[in-house]
Design a protein around this nucleic acid. Structure first.
Lengths: 202, 202
DNA sequence: ACGGCAATGTTGACAATGTCAAGATACGTG
DNA sequence: CACGTATCTTGACATTGTCAACATTGCCGT
């Protein structure tokens, strides 16, 4: 597994090298030649596994979305009632963004969602990450715990709030909040609770 | 003013060329040499006005934030009561993102907020865009229209929601929603109203 | 077993870019 | 009017994405 390059699964090795580069130095540091170098192959070898740089990025993003989806599924499972599920989902989403800011950034790069085929894979992976939230909101509405209205509308509101907060933590002016675990927890709590206020029936 | 290059204000011409490139082809299409070409100067001329590509990006972003701030100020002025102000602010923010998606993307690029000096300019410009929302929330709380709590917490919640929604419209899976004015208006309305639910006293 | 094909890697080349160093030019200030 | 400084140009270099041509190698059917 250590030297799976020359013959083993180069594609896998390249994706993993890419993840390492992204985690260490950010999305913009990701380079086809650099990844090839890390994997110990020639600079053009990646072209046998990825159409171009954008394609590699998309593959990595799909990987990340799969990870996020797993977390979302587990988060929902960890919540007894729909409102707790939403809380868990929100917290987990924020945790992911703060833990892996560079991956989170990559996942929302606009290039990923252009017309190209790889973009569609990413879009699908993204949808799957969204499903648990949709389910939790639907359940909450079924119990008459959440307000009436279209499920997608309510879920979108919740997603937008948490996503926006995560974005501000990662890319925006809340970077120092994100760096302080105590403040981060407090701010996240605040946002999640206010979000629930929007969902709950009063 | 048409050919203010060779002598006039090259810096200005470069920023404007950069805005044009970004609007037309996206942030990643922005290139120092390309901008120089557009402005009709040699490829190294920009270095007398910007330290490097990141610096040019930061200058453009600062310009965009100034524009956003103006819109936010006007939006707040257009709202009679605090809740209407929040509505106007939210709508305007979303409008800006949808109208000028590429500028909006640039403004939240993480590179802008690194340690460098230009980043600080951007951060300051961003804060000014935030001020009207803070003021509206404070006013709403003063009138006892909005719920009790820390003003920054409430404002952050509102910002996060609207910002997240805008991000999903621009970079995420809501791109087709953004393309249809009717659906966009409905979705924006939904998000803004739910946000207000989180702010209002019940 | 074996000959050949398709997948996988490698080398070499090209254009574009960011960036720097040296030289040219022009503008304002003494 | 001379001079220094800000501004611009030219030339060069390393890095990168990408393609084409060539090498290798494992697998397939015969």
């Amino acid at each position: 597994m250590v030297d799976a390059y020359h013959h083993g699964d180069l594609r896998r090795a390249l994706v993993e090298a890419a993840l390492a580069v992204i985690d260490e130095d950010g999305v913009d540091a990701l380079t086809l030649r650099g990844v090839a170098r890390r994997a110990g192959v020639s600079h053009a070898a990646p072209y046998h596994h990825f159409a171009d740089l954008a394609d590699l990025r998309a593959a990595v993003a799909a990987e990340c979305f799969a990870d996020l989806r797993d977390r979302m599924v587990r988060a929902r499972a960890a919540g007894a009632s729909p409102d707790r599920q939403v809380r868990e989902l929100g917290r987990s989403y924020i945790d992911y963004a703060v833990e892996r800011p560079n991956r989170f950034r990559l996942m929302w790069r606009p290039e990923l969602r252009g017309p190209g085929a790889p973009g569609e894979v990413v879009a699908l992976a993204g949808e799957e990450s969204y499903r648990p939230l949709l389910a939790a909101v639907a359940a909450g509405q079924h119990t008459r715990l959440f307000r009436a209205g279209e499920v997608p509308d309510l879920a979108l509101f919740a997603w937008a709030t948490v996503h926006g907060f995560a974005t501000l933590l990662v890319d925006g002016p809340l970077a120092d909040t994100a760096a302080d675990p105590a403040r981060l927890a407090a701010a996240a709590e605040n946002v999640v609770e206010l979000t629930l206020t929007g969902l709950l029936r009063h």
